[in-house]
């Protein structure tokens, strides 16, 4: 049986903060207080069909405020479709979602001013210079912090005079990341932010960028499970448009234990990796429901 947001809440699963640098004031309560803790994103029966193809099938998902929520799945699992549906870029076929308390289909400038978004496929104006792009964005956001912008640009070593089209893929992603934080968004959505980055660049993003996010809730989609494990507090597994699991990492371990069977000595000491759990759950999902139920019990 697959765990839903509601069932995860009922079990009062612990929230784990890993490599994020957060001040004491920002530390959320140790347990997900489902009745009290604010939910920043909530999806109910969210579905999207392209003709007969179901890209999303009845997704029920909630993202607690202050979490780093990793949406994981193989390529084509529906991660990007889910994110674009949340941001009103794609209209859902069925179901609904709220983002920052607003119906996703009614998201307007006031809500978007509180959402930072970075995507590997984001079409940026190629002929514009990096500095000009920042100049263009500043007045869009009333809360834009110029000092934070300068700090991010310096930390990520963005060349101000270079045209965006002349930047490498990694530099473009870093620039998009640097544009997503200076207005202190309440929700930061990162769609495959590590895709195509080399190891150094990934470390730079994870170590140099994410700590700047502060109390911002982060929704990150990725298929880079090992990297995500370094900073995620919550995960959701998507497989072929269906949600396999959502909850904290500890809850995930609890949930996946019956599926794992004999683990290696290393894993027995450190606990199973995200990758192992993901593979086990996807394999279970591919089996018949009867086989899955037998494995879980």
């Amino acid at each position: 049986m697959l765990m839903t947001a509601a069932s995860a809440c009922k079990q009062r699963l612990p929230l784990r903060l890993m490599s994020r640098t957060v001040s004491t004031a920002e530390v959320p309560p140790p347990l997900i207080q489902c009745t009290r803790m604010a939910t920043i994103v909530e999806a109910l029966d969210l579905s999207k069909n392209y003709g007969r193809f179901g890209a999303l099938e009845g997704i029920d998902l909630s993202i607690p405020e202050g979490s780093v929520f990793a949406l994981l799945g193989a390529s084509g699992a529906g991660k990007t479709t889910f994110i674009k549906t949340l941001l009103n870029i794609i209209a859902p076929t069925r179901g609904a979602a709220t983002v920052l308390g607003v119906d996703s289909r009614a998201i307007g400038p006031a809500t978007l001013a509180q959402i930072g978004y970075v995507s590997e496929n984001q079409a940026l104006p190629a002929r514009l210079r990096v500095a000009d792009f920042f100049t263009y964005l500043r007045p869009c956001y009333p809360m834009w912090n110029r000092d934070l912008e300068n700090e991010l640009r310096e930390r990520l070593r963005l060349p101000a005079r270079r045209k965006i089209g002349a930047l490498s893929h990694g530099m473009r992603l870093k620039m998009a990341l640097a544009c997503a934080l200076p207005f202190r968004p309440r929700l930061l959505v990162l769609d495959e932010p590590l895709s195509g980055l080399d190891a150094l660049a990934r470390d730079e993003v994870i170590g140099g960028f994410l700590p700047q996010a502060g109390a911002t809730t982060i929704l990150v989609s990725s298929h880079e499970l090992d990297e995500v494990e370094r900073f995620a507090t919550h995960v959701a597994f998507l497989h072929e448009g269906r949600l396999l699991f959502q909850g904290s990492l500890d809850a995930l371990r609890e949930h996946a234990r019956p599926l794992l069977g004999n683990s290696s000595v290393l894993e027995a000491r450190a606990g199973p990796s995200l990758r192992t759990m993901f593979v086990a759950m996807v394999s279970a999902a591919r089996r018949s429901p009867a086989e899955t139920a037998a494995a879980l019990h």
Binding site: T111, L112, A123, L137
Partner: peptide
Amino acid sequence: HQDAIPGIDQDWLIRPLR
């Protein structure tokens, strides 16, 4: 076309623009 309407990857879609 600088801010094309069709498509899902345009930058303006996620900016707070009226």
